[in-house]
Design a protein around this nucleic acid. Structure first.
Lengths: 155, 155
DNA sequence: GTAGATGCAAAATGTTTGCTCTAAT
DNA sequence: ATTAGAGCAAACATTTTGCATCTAC
């Protein structure tokens, strides 16, 4: 996800507009939660988001964070990632994309490839299942988590 | 997953053999847990498995089910699915395959398509990420969960 | 002013763990 | 006999919920 100031500003503007169109109140809490997601490519979980906002907004409660994320998801403002089973992670990038999932540090990295836009799926093998979308996780090791040198190279 | 008696028998035989090779004790609990997974294409969660075995083995505890599933996963005897974020689901099908995920009834259906064996990924877009495997979820509505007729067809 | 949002605390859910006793090899 | 496994209950982590108060519109 592009996290340049300009891209973040763009996302925020679209967010404000969609909230207006949906009739959702633009509270400071909601704005803060969205801002964390819009400016962060690491796909934080609810607790992460809470911890980042809390210092500057001590009244914030974790329940509000959960309720707000659920609300955003329902309205298609963000999406929920199911990469690990212990907690949900969230994504403000609405472009068609997929994810690289590092099994060591649990980093989740956005990944875009036009060739994955349409999957070459044989309709007959679907057996009546109606496909609405697809998620692809490439599972492995991120650049930081790979052994830098082969162990035998040390001397 | 093929759940014909012959296919189940095959899986069980392979399981017993691998347990022996790994030095894992073949307790009645472990066998029961594996049998549930080997004969069931619905990818049950830990609690489901527990509920199915408990009547015929009243001494079974839920903790044992969790510990056993974890053990099986560590040794590559089963895999863990992250399709929904509230609980892990498990899969005894070790063939290279993917999943259809019904958002309505939460069914998870095995799905095999040779054209998805290798993904057409541009290495440059991976930015140093080392891919070890990939998971594909086709998200949508299973045959049972689709509106049978268009609503307007009623009269 | 009012509907809807927040904060707080309790509860629900899914999962893990320590310890003792049991059973498989 | 020895070591690993099972059962039980307590602990833990994450998420949801009820209710009183507050605030964006």
């Amino acid at each position: 996800m592009d996290t340049s100031p300009a891209a973040i500003e763009m996302r925020l503007a679209a967010f404000r507009q969609r909230c207006g169109a949906l009739g959702l109140a633009l509270t400071p809490q909601r704005l803060a939660i969205y801002q964390v997601l819009a400016g962060d490519a690491s796909h934080p979980g609810a607790e992460d988001i809470y911890r980042r906002i809390k210092p500057g907004m001590p009244s914030l409660s974790l329940g509000t964070v959960y309720r707000t994320l659920e609300l955003f998801e329902e309205h298609g403002l963000i999406s929920r990632l199911h990469a690990f089973s212990d907690q949900s992670r969230f994504d403000a990038n609405l472009d068609d994309h997929h994810h690289l999932v590092c099994v060591r540090c649990r980093r989740i990295i956005d990944f875009q490839d036009d060739r994955l836009r349409e999957l070459p799926v044989e309709p007959a093998s679907l057996d009546g299942f109606q496909v609405l979308g697809h998620r692809i996780h490439l599972v492995g090791l991120c650049a930081e988590c790979q052994p830098e040198h082969s162990p035998a190279a040390r001397s």
